[in-house]
Write a protein that binds this DNA or RNA. Sequence first.
DNA 1: TAAATTGTTTAGCCAAGACTAAATATTGCA
DNA 2: TGCAATATTTAGTCTTGGCTAAACAATTTA
Lengths: 229, 229
Amino acid sequence: MLSQSVENFVKAVYSLQKSDEWVGTSRLANALGQRPASVTNMAQKLAKSEDGLLIYQAYKGVKLTETGTSVALEVIRHHRLIELYLSKQLGVPWDKVHDEAEKLEHVISEDLEDRMAAALEDPTIDPHGAPIPTKDGHVAPRPSVPLASVEPGHVVEVVEVNDHDAQLLRYLGELDLYPGNRFSVLGRESFGQSISIERDGKPTSLGEEAVPHIFVTVIGEIEKKKDPE
Amino acid sequence: MLSQSVENFVKAVYSLQKSDEWVGTSRLANALGQRPASVTNMAQKLAKSEDGLLIYQAYKGVKLTETGTSVALEVIRHHRLIELYLSKQLGVPWDKVHDEAEKLEHVISEDLEDRMAAALEDPTIDPHGAPIPTKDGHVAPRPSVPLASVEPGHVVEVVEVNDHDAQLLRYLGELDLYPGNRFSVLGRESFGQSISIERDGKPTSLGEEAVPHIFVTVIGEIEKKKDPE
DNA sequence: TAAATTGTTTAGCCAAGACTAAATATTGCA
DNA sequence: TGCAATATTTAGTCTTGGCTAAACAATTTA
């Protein structure tokens, strides 16, 4: 049985390891809220273990093996299923589900996982728009681009938002910017990353704190319907 | 934040502490699946701590304070709510809910507890017939007697069964001996604690493993309905 | 290309929570 | 009442998983 620390470690490696680069100890330490020395320790321990979850090279960092990857995906599946279950079946607000899932993901049985998935009819995305890995470790890729990269004048649909920051989620919730919803990108503010948008007829300025955590697909150009002056 | 070890410790003390006697380290060790020395350690640590969960006297044992009692009741409320939730909302069989709840009870938030309770419409007993403590720490007493103490010739109703032994629960499930169900006590077997019973017209011998874990109320005398020979 | 900066590892420490073995207290019984 | 049996505590050890401070490697920059 893997400890919660190990599960969290592997999960962190997975989510930092875009492509198949090495993941450095500092980035991991940052993601885990720990000190780099602690990460080095754990990395060395896991690399030496028979579990074969990852490989470690001094001063390079860490890379998941096949085994490690599927462990990570299992934990992430737990996490996202739990988030969705809490949200849909128990009405937990979307800014709270992450923290709750963070604890529950390590203690539910496979059987319980299956039952939750069945109750939700084998869902594929979680409340923040992130894909739920399948039991056999497949992740459906969801095309999206950072909101910051969208040129003004386009209508976009929210694909996914970062689930880590509860305050951000409450803010987005107030603006009704849930995955699946659409809004128009009107323009960039003069300074910083802020963007002015229009959702449901209401124009707003989207704070620069929020922009980097929103991923969208471009639906099309803005159409000027009425007000043809 | 109390650790899981501490929560389990306090819970164990609570459930062994009928009346207000001291609870000895051996009994605790036995209940916790640990060695007596480990229990002494923990008892001394907790007694010295500022949390004030319990008092400890060398060679006597341990006794919960008010605070300790309400912590225990909180954990037990979690446990039993979770058991019932899993059973009713997710169809987890009653011999599995205990182990699952044992892990979940330490990680759910108060908010989640409230939501589960609401979804179940503020239930008062769990799948094994045990009372669910209220949020303010009240336990509705449920009058019952050990099945072993019932004289043959009576109809009884199952009030509560011990939830610790999954095998026992499967056995009782096969016999349909769920809390709320009734059966007749026909007689005692010549040796051991076995009892012959009749449930739903079907006579059975109830193994001596099972008898001490069943608690009932006496409903009345057996009436010979048909077969008046 | 050498020095300064930055990032990583090593070494040693700590707390929690379990264990065993040995010492000590309590209890039960002759 | 005193000794044997039983229960409890003490003392010391181990593992896990974190930390800090100091040493060391790699990278950046003058």
